[in-house]
Structure formats: structure tokens, C-alpha cells
């Protein structure tokens, strides 16, 4: 029983991280209809920025997280301005290739600056909580709580503030949003900033129980794509639910089926789901 609970906690941790990354991806997709392959690179840069602020500059974990969030948000805005904005009228294949270009560039740049080694990054939360025999490392608890706060915060921002509503409006209906005078450029930049910030926060939360290296974004971004396809591209609740599905499947599958193949599970799940329902699990009608 305890082992099952332990695995469920692990699943929840993984699911929280995946949800945060997938949220950023789905927001950008909802607004601009770009599958942002560079999102994994933003996640990786987020981890490295936190590492830089914390280890090299000696900042506190929280300060480093905020700093990294700001840097990656700015990077996201820069990508939007320099790359995706000029490509807004191009065929969709160009957006994808440009996103791949950004991904390759950021990865090579980080590798040049920091090298390809695997790095450890420890946060101040190294203790464990013991709840009636159930062992929860503090960092994992922090991930779950942090992700919950961020998801709720994002919801409040999107639903309760005027600025947030413009994002939702544009995702729901582009022309309608233009008609009521919403500035498309501002919304696009804001979306990229939020998306980058979420990626940086996710990386900062997850890095202490994982490793920091230039290729760390690969698997995460591919899983995030699987998640938003399962949850419906552009859907915010879909990203959270999809993230949890993948997180739990991976934690349980990795334990009960095979640890070697745990990373294949998400992709196999996608292949099976798309073979049966090409439109995804939660989407209504044709895409």
C-alpha cells in the first residue's frame, strides 16, 4: 500500500512538472497556432539560468527562480519578435522549422558556455517529510505545491484580469478579438513571456531532483507535446489533465512494468491514442 502511495506521489510530482511545461506550450499554440519546438530549449535555459544565479552568483533559490523566470520570459518575447512575428503569414511548415532553428541555437549556445556535463543543483529544501511512514522529500512537496499555485494563479490571471482575458479572447476567436480592439502584438508577446516563465519555473522546481545539462529539454518537450495532443491543443485544462495522465502512467508504468522503457510509455500511449482517435482524446469535432 505504501509503495503504491509512494508511486502516486512520484506520479503527482512528474505530472506537476509536465503540466507546467505543457501549459506554456498550449498557451502559445492557442494564440499563434505554432507548435513551439523551442519550448524545451526555453525550459533548459531556465534551469541553467537558475544554476547561474544560484551557484555562480550565490543568490537565494527563490531569487534565482525569479531571475531565471524574467530572463526566459524576455527570451520568449525576443523569439516572438524576431522570428515568429515575421513568419506570421508563412506556410505552417516554416514556423516549425524556425522553431527547430531556435532550439538548435539555444542548445549549442548553452553547451558552449557551460559545457555538456551533467550538473547537480541543490535547493535549500533537502529534508524529507515523514507522514505515517510515507516518505516525501521536501523538494517533491514543493514541486506539487508550486505547480498548484502557478496553475491557480494562471487561471485567476486569465479569468479575472483584463489583460489575461485578452489572451483567452484571442485564443477563442482571432477575428472577434481584433474587432473589439485587442492588440495582437501585445497578446502574442505576453503569451510568449508567460510561457517562458512557466518553463523556467518548472525547470527550477524540477532540477534539484534531476540533473542540469544541455539536452535536458528533449524528453520533457516531447512529452509536453504528447500531453497537449492528448488534452487538445490550445486547451488549458487539457494540458493539466494530460500532464497528470502522463505523469501517473510513467511513475506507475516505470515501477510495475519496466524502468528501462518508462520513457517510451508516453509515446506509445500517444501512438495508440492517435491511431484510434486521430483528433485527440478531449477535442470535439474535427481539428
Amino acid at each position: 500500500m505504501n509503495i503504491l502511495l509512494q508511486n502516486l506521489i512520484n506520479g503527482l510530482t512528474l505530472g506537476s512538472i509536465y503540466s507546467l511545461v505543457a501549459l506554456g506550450l498550449t498557451l502559445v499554440y492557442g494564440i499563434l497556432h505554432i507548435p513551439n519546438f523551442a519550448h524545451g530549449a526555453l525550459y533548459m535555459v531556465g534551469a541553467f539560468m537558475t544554476y547561474f544565479f544560484m551557484v555562480d552568483l550565490g543568490a537565494h533559490y527563490w531569487i534565482a527562480m525569479l531571475g531565471s523566470g524574467a530572463v526566459v520570459a524576455a527570451l520568449g518575447v525576443l523569439c516572438e519578435r524576431l522570428v515568429f512575428h515575421p513568419l506570421r503569414h508563412s506556410p505552417p511548415i516554416h514556423d516549425k522549422i524556425a522553431a527547430i532553428g531556435i532550439l538548435l541555437f539555444l542548445e549549442a549556445l548553452v553547451q558552449m558556455l557551460w559545457g555538456a556535463d551533467f550538473r547537480r543543483m541543490s535547493s535549500p529544501f533537502t529534508g524529507v517529510m515523514n507522514i505515517q511512514g510515507l516518505i516525501i522529500p521536501e523538494q517533491r512537496a514543493l514541486i506539487i505545491a508550486g505547480a498548484a499555485v502557478l496553475v491557480v494563479g494562471l487561471q485567476l490571471f486569465l479569468r479575472r484580469t483584463m489583460t489575461g482575458s485578452t489572451i483567452l479572447a484571442m485564443a477563442q476567436n482571432r477575428e472577434g478579438a481584433f474587432l473589439v480592439g485587442i492588440d495582437a502584438n501585445r497578446v502574442a508577446m505576453m503569451t510568449f513571456a508567460i510561457s517562458g516563465m512557466l518553463a523556467a519555473f518548472a525547470a527550477t522546481l524540477y532540477a534539484p531532483i534531476n540533473l542540469v545539462y544541455p539536452a535536458m529539454g528533449h524528453l520533457v518537450i516531447m512529452k509536453a507535446f504528447v500531453i497537449i495532443i492528448i488534452g487538445g491543443m490550445g486547451s488549458i485544462p487539457g494540458a493539466v489533465i494530460g500532464g497528470m495522465i502522463i505523469g501517473f502512467t510513467e511513475a506507475l508504468g516505470g515501477f510495475y512494468l519496466s524502468n528501462d522503457y518508462k520513457d517510451v510509455i508516453a509515446f506509445a500511449l500517444l501512438v495508440v491514442i492517435l491511431s484510434i482517435r486521430p483528433q485527440g482524446l478531449f477535442t470535439k469535432g474535427a481539428h
Binding site: L82, V83, P86, L87, S90, H94, I97, A98, I100, G101, I102, L103, L104, F105, L106, E107, A108, L109, Q111, M112
Partner: peptide, 17 residues
């Protein structure tokens, strides 16, 4: 060889634009 993507990444972006 190792860092070619620093050049090729922006090259891809430049080309598609």
C-alpha cells in the same frame, strides 16, 4: 563540429524568413 548549431540554428531561421 560540436558547435555548428550556433551558426546553423540562426541560419535556418534566417532562411525561412
Amino acid at each position: 563540429e560540436e558547435y555548428r548549431m550556433i551558426l546553423f540554428g540562426p541560419l535556418l531561421v534566417f532562411l525561412v524568413i
